[in-house]
Simulated assay, not measured.
Amino acid sequence: MPLALARHILVKTQAEAEQLKQKLAKGADFGQLAKRHSLCPSKKRGGDLGEIRPGQMVRAVDQVIFKKPLHQVHGPVKTKFGFHLIEVIFRDR
Rank of each mutant, 00 (worst) to 15 (best):
residue 22 Q to L: 14
residue 40 C to T: 15
residue 32 Q to S: 12
residue 82 G to Y: 01
residue 46 G to W: 04
residue 55 G to K: 09
residue 48 D to T: 08
residue 26 K to N: 14
residue 67 K to S: 14
residue 77 V to H: 03
residue 32 Q to C: 09
residue 74 H to K: 07
residue 33 L to W: 04
residue 82 G to E: 00
residue 67 K to Q: 15
residue 26 K to F: 12
residue 26 K to E: 14
residue 86 I to N: 01
residue 32 Q to A: 13
residue 3 L to W: 15
residue 18 E to W: 09
residue 21 K to I: 06
residue 82 G to N: 05
residue 49 L to I: 06
residue 25 A to N: 11
residue 71 H to L: 15
residue 44 K to P: 06
residue 82 G to Q: 04
residue 31 G to E: 10
residue 48 D to R: 05
residue 52 I to F: 06
residue 9 I to L: 09
residue 17 A to Y: 01
residue 74 H to P: 02
residue 35 K to D: 09
residue 84 H to V: 02
residue 2 P to A: 15
residue 49 L to T: 00
residue 74 H to D: 05
residue 34 A to H: 02
residue 48 D to L: 10
residue 79 T to P: 01
residue 2 P to M: 15
residue 25 A to G: 09
residue 65 I to N: 01
residue 91 R to W: 04
residue 24 L to P: 01
residue 4 A to R: 03
residue 28 A to L: 05
residue 26 K to D: 14
residue 42 S to N: 09
residue 85 L to S: 04
residue 74 H to R: 02
residue 74 H to I: 03
residue 47 G to L: 02
residue 3 L to S: 15
residue 2 P to T: 14
residue 10 L to H: 04
residue 40 C to I: 09
residue 25 A to R: 11
residue 48 D to Y: 14
residue 81 F to S: 10
residue 40 C to N: 15
residue 49 L to K: 02
residue 89 I to E: 09
residue 74 H to W: 08
residue 15 A to T: 13
residue 88 V to R: 01
residue 48 D to N: 14
residue 80 K to L: 12
residue 58 V to M: 11
residue 37 H to T: 13
residue 16 E to F: 07
residue 35 K to H: 10
residue 92 D to T: 13
residue 39 L to N: 06
residue 81 F to V: 08
residue 59 R to C: 09
residue 68 K to W: 08
residue 87 E to P: 01
residue 92 D to M: 13
residue 27 G to C: 08
residue 88 V to I: 09
residue 78 K to G: 00
residue 13 T to K: 07
residue 35 K to L: 10
residue 75 G to N: 04
residue 51 E to H: 11
residue 3 L to F: 15
residue 20 L to H: 05
residue 80 K to V: 12
residue 65 I to F: 03
residue 8 H to T: 10
residue 62 D to W: 06
residue 75 G to V: 01
residue 56 Q to F: 12
residue 11 V to A: 02
residue 79 T to V: 03
residue 85 L to Q: 02
residue 6 A to P: 07
residue 66 F to P: 04
residue 59 R to Q: 11
residue 78 K to M: 06
residue 90 F to E: 15
residue 39 L to S: 03
residue 48 D to A: 12
residue 82 G to P: 06
residue 74 H to L: 05
residue 71 H to N: 15
residue 31 G to K: 07
residue 24 L to T: 01
residue 53 R to Q: 11
residue 92 D to L: 13
residue 18 E to P: 00
residue 77 V to L: 06
residue 93 R to A: 13
residue 79 T to I: 03
residue 55 G to A: 08
residue 81 F to K: 11
residue 77 V to G: 03
residue 7 R to V: 07
residue 93 R to E: 12
residue 86 I to S: 00
residue 32 Q to N: 11
residue 47 G to Y: 00
residue 15 A to Q: 13
residue 24 L to H: 01
residue 22 Q to P: 07
residue 90 F to D: 14
residue 83 F to M: 07
residue 40 C to Q: 12
residue 82 G to R: 06
residue 4 A to D: 04
residue 49 L to R: 02
residue 87 E to D: 04
residue 93 R to S: 12
residue 42 S to Y: 10
residue 15 A to D: 13
residue 45 R to A: 11
residue 59 R to H: 13
residue 90 F to T: 11
